[in-house]
Every structure is written in C-alpha cells, then in structure tokens.
Design a protein around this nucleic acid. Structure first.
Lengths: 146, 146
DNA sequence: GGAAAATAGTTACCTAGGTAATTAAAGGAG
DNA sequence: CTCCTTTAATTACCTAGGTAACTATTTTCC
C-alpha cells in the first residue's frame, strides 16, 4: 500500500472542498474558516473561544483571527465572561438574519461537491475516517502522558 | 448524511497528516511541501515546474516558492530548458545523498500515522477517495467547457 | 513576417493553520 | 497573604495554498 498516495488524496480532497466553499461564500464576503465558526455558533449557541477552537480542532491563534474578522464584519460579538480571562462568542442579530441565505448557498455547493458519490459510499468513507481520526487521537493521548 | 461532518473529517485528517510530517522533517530543516517535491523528483527525475505543479495538483505560485527555498538550501537546481520559458528542476548531489535519511524518517512516521488502521481499510479508503476525486475532476472539466 | 493569443514562470497579496512567547486573570501551596 | 503555576486569549512570525496581475518567451494565424 502506497501511503504517499493515500495521504496525498486526503490532502487534495481537503483543498478541493475548501476551495469550493470559498467560491460560494465569496459573494457574501465570507471565507470557509469564518463559515465554520458561524455554523457552530448557530448550532451550539454562545461558546467561549476555547470551546470553539476545541470543537473545530483548531489552535487558539487562528481562532482569534477568524473571530476578530467576524467582529469587524458585525457578525459576531465578544462578551466578557464572569471569569475575566474568557470571552463568550455569540452571533449578532445581523448574522442570524443573514444565516439562512448563507446556509442555502453552502448546502447547495455541498450537494454539488458530493454529487455522483452514493450515500452508501459517503457513509463508508465517513466511517473509515472517523476510525482513523480516533486512532490518531488515542496516539496523541499516549504521548501527552510523558 | 451530515456533509459538514464528512468534510470536517477530511480537513482534519489532512491537517493531522501534514502536522506529523512537519514534525519529523523539522530536524532536517525541511517542511512537508518541500518533501513532496523532493519525493516526486526522486521518483520521476527532472521535471519542469509546470509538470511538478500538475503532478502535485498545486498552483504555480506556491510551487515557485517551494522550489526557491529548496534552491536556497542547495537541494535542487533550476536548469533552463531549450524553450526558454521553462525551467527543469532536478535534485542536487547533496539532496540525493541525504534522501535515504529523509525517506527513512518519513516512512517511519507514515507507518506510525496509519498504525491501528488495517490494510484492508486503507485500501477501501483509498478506493473511495479516488472515486470522489475523479468525480470532482470530471465536474471541473464540464465547467471549463463554457 | 508581424500582430495577437497562448504559455511558463514570477510577484504581490490574500486566507488558513501552526508554534513560541507574552499578558492577564484564577487557583493552589506554603 | 504571597508566591508559583495554570489557563484563556493575544501577538508575532512561520509554512501552505489560492487568485490576479505581470513578464518573457513561443505559437498561431492572417
């Protein structure tokens, strides 16, 4: 088994997906990283930056940047917590109003991206990747024991 | 089927793989994008930048940057072609000498990354991704007809 | 042959993500 | 209470990849 090929395929798929998302979001002045934050906030409600970055499996610094851009665009608010170290992030009314439009566009593109790939194959693929990710996660867990 | 989840998994896997590759390459002063160029050159011999970027499915500008860094490190040479627009890229003797060491380190990390994921599952995953990628490719082909 | 179109590579500038170091607040041990 | 450690967020700086615009050749077509 050529692992290079496997890894390359994963990488290329990831870039293709992001590229397509960016294409569709462009006309709303959004980018894929911003969208993923908006999406999570809509599903989960207000979260701290820490929770957001854990949820999206991204380090804190990129999360700070993405949020600051969303703040500047007026789509998100930072609310200081009782613990003054943390900041809760929540959608503004503007974002909640615009959300359905964004979502529709993204969902359409998602369907387009997955077109020609059967539900059963999607399920298999998701299953395999989940398994792989969890094995990677458990490896990391071991290393952090030190 | 939650496409968000599927796409997120692909993205996360891609980042994990690159992160691990960078970790192992760090001690040789290399990064994953550089490695992928060195790897292709070792397999294929001298290639033009155009061929390299097509092979790795990367746009020309990032390829220029990666190559310029490799040139600076003395691992790669740019040889002007007969057609003066193109530049052939080839490994230097230094790179050829060091290559086995790099390869060993990368292969070990690859095995570690895939550990706990059976050969059969690897094969299935590769199969599914190849199918998906080719369907995406054919979509792009259609759009370029315009 | 000469003007126009195509092509290889580069430059400039953007987003996405990473690490290391810093700041400010909260907790804990003595 | 004080000092030390931990933690959330930020800042600075790095690689990876993308698009748009540009340069310099080559091809094409009249």
């Amino acid at each position: 088994m050529e692992l290079h090929v496997l890894f390359h395929s994963v990488h290329q798929l990831s870039r293709q997906i992001m590229k397509r998302n960016n294409t569709v979001l462009q006309k709303y002045g959004l980018y894929s990283a911003q969208w993923s934050v908006l999406y999570v906030l809509m599903q989960q409600g207000r979260l701290t930056q820490k929770e957001l970055s854990e949820y999206l499996a991204v380090e804190a610094p990129p999360m700070t940047r993405t949020i600051q851009r969303l703040v500047k665009q007026g789509y998100v608010r930072q609310v200081p917590g009782e613990d003054k170290r943390m900041k809760f992030i929540e959608l503004t009314e503007l974002a909640q109003k615009e959300y359905p439009v964004w979502e529709k566009a993204v969902l359409e593109m998602n369907e387009q991206t997955i077109k020609g790939f059967s539900k059963e194959h999607q399920r298999q693929l998701q299953q395999l990747m989940a398994e792989w990710l969890s094995s990677l996660e458990s490896q990391q867990g071991e290393e952090e024991k030190k």
